[in-house]
Amino acid sequence: MSRTDPPSPAPSTYAIDGQITRARPVEPALYAVSTPIGNLGDVTLRALEVLAASDLVVCEDTRVTRTLLDRYAIRKPMAAYHDHNAARERPRLLAMLRGGKTLALVSDAGTPLVSDPGYKLVEEALAEGLKVIPIPGPSAILAALVAAGLPTDAFAFLGFLPPRSSARRTRLAAFAALPATLVLYEAPHRAAETLADMAAVLGPGRPGVLARELTKRFEEIRRGTLEALAAGALADPPRGEIVLLAGPPAETETGDDDLDALLRAALETQGPGQAAAEIAKATGRPRKEVYARARSLRATGDEPEASGGARDEPDNPDLPS
């Protein structure tokens, strides 16, 4: 081949245990391809076929994705796409899609767009009328749910909570009364303090789960009350990728102790009126009653001083219930 000749395209093949398979052609599109969250054996055949048939594999970290492609002998060019270069790379990737190329979008682990930077690329592709095709597969959210032993008929994914405790408690309070299992991701060094906040806001006796390193060699699933899990994470800090879960609230009216816990968390960053409105909506308790309790907690000093400049509000006896 002369120096002026273009390089030969990478073969559209993949291999399993040395058995080489030619991938069938796929429709030009942006494919959101789910990849293993740890165990490389969890990849689907359809995912391998799309990766092998694509013109470009778009990934967060090429080193991470290269490990998967090498495992299955897939030789395709890769492009890094992450928070720091997304604005620069998106126009080029969209131009390739407009030109009829096939792009496989993957995250470092699991399903793309779930707590990763692929959302804007998919959003803009759809806005231009370009086709986006999901290739389902592994997900840390679902893996943790099915092994947790908590109700799965309704669940809410909260992503990563804010790093500061006051903001974290405020966000948790907004979901405290939701009749669903709560699922969130957390960094291992914050697991203990996040579980402590979950216990304070959701209730210390609420059932919870800490799942770590799912599908990997050191997979571990800790079950217990949120209070016990917080103490355990403090005494024995977990390592690796963490998923935290909290079961739904008991099917009873929010008790006074639970109401006070919710209010204390909200009053760290809000005044009584705003906190009462939020908690009343979440619990179904009358707003006048919740507002009166918030004022009482503040008057007796039984709640921390609000941060971020939140100030006390004047009494408002005409608040709607």
Rank of each mutant, 00 (worst) to 15 (best):
A174H: 04
A23F: 12
K101R: 15
L178V: 06
G271T: 13
P36C: 10
I141K: 08
T21F: 14
A174N: 05
A148K: 09
R293C: 02
V209I: 12
M198V: 10
Y14W: 14
G308V: 08
E220R: 09
E89I: 12
A15Y: 12
V26K: 08
R212P: 07
M1P: 06
M198C: 14
R293M: 03
L94P: 07
L202R: 04
S321P: 00
A125H: 00
E313N: 12
Q270H: 15
L97K: 06
G273L: 11
A299I: 07
A292Y: 01
E49V: 08
D5Y: 05
H82Q: 13
R223W: 12
E253C: 00
P11I: 06
R264S: 04
D55I: 01
G41H: 00
D116K: 13
A196T: 02
E193L: 07
L184G: 13
T254F: 07
G308I: 05
I37W: 10
D312F: 08
V58C: 08
E124G: 12
P134A: 03
S54L: 05
V57H: 05
T252F: 05
A292E: 11
R293E: 04
A79T: 09
A231Q: 13
L267Q: 05
S321R: 14
R223A: 13
R3T: 12
A200F: 00
R171W: 03
K120V: 14
P163V: 14
G118T: 10
I135Q: 01
G110E: 01
F160S: 12
M1S: 15
R98V: 09
L93D: 01
D315P: 12
Q19A: 15
N316R: 15
G100R: 06
V50A: 05
H84C: 03
A292F: 00
K76A: 04
P136L: 01
F175W: 12
G159M: 15
A306H: 09
A73Q: 15
N39V: 08
F155W: 11
T65E: 03
L121R: 08
Q19K: 14
R88C: 00
A211H: 02
A156D: 09
R190A: 00
A53P: 08
A261K: 02
H84R: 14
D83P: 06
A95R: 15
A196L: 06
V290E: 02
E227W: 00
A306F: 09
I37E: 04
E268D: 04
E128G: 04
T35F: 03
G205W: 05
R164Y: 05
N39C: 05
A95K: 15
G100P: 05
P272C: 12
I20Y: 02
S8R: 15
A280N: 02
S165F: 00
A52W: 11
